[in-house]
Amino acid sequence: MEIKHTALAGTLESSDIQFTLSKGDSGVEINLDSQVEKQFGKQIRKVITDLLAEYGIENVKVRAVDKGALDCTIKARLIAAIQRATDTKNQPNWEVLG
């Protein structure tokens, strides 16, 4: 799937994460800002890359500002951002969500 335009999801409040997805042309570029980068940076990046792969998104710029979100929150916010950025808000991808 292709990113059609920039989209945002999530907030900057505690235990949440804010994603901004925009068009890219050199693979998946993740720019992560997190206070728990040292402890969980690798895990957060894995959740992001795995989910993007499931959606078949190959080129994208991901800006993530993490405020200590759990994996399920990260997934939920990223799915929202993906669906907004790909104009598929009304066509949930059940296989990924299942």
Binding site: L8, T11, L12, E13, S14, Q18, K67
Partner: peptide, 10 residues
Amino acid sequence: FNKLVSTLIN
């Protein structure tokens, strides 16, 4: 503060 900035960004 976080809520305020976040609301503005959204």
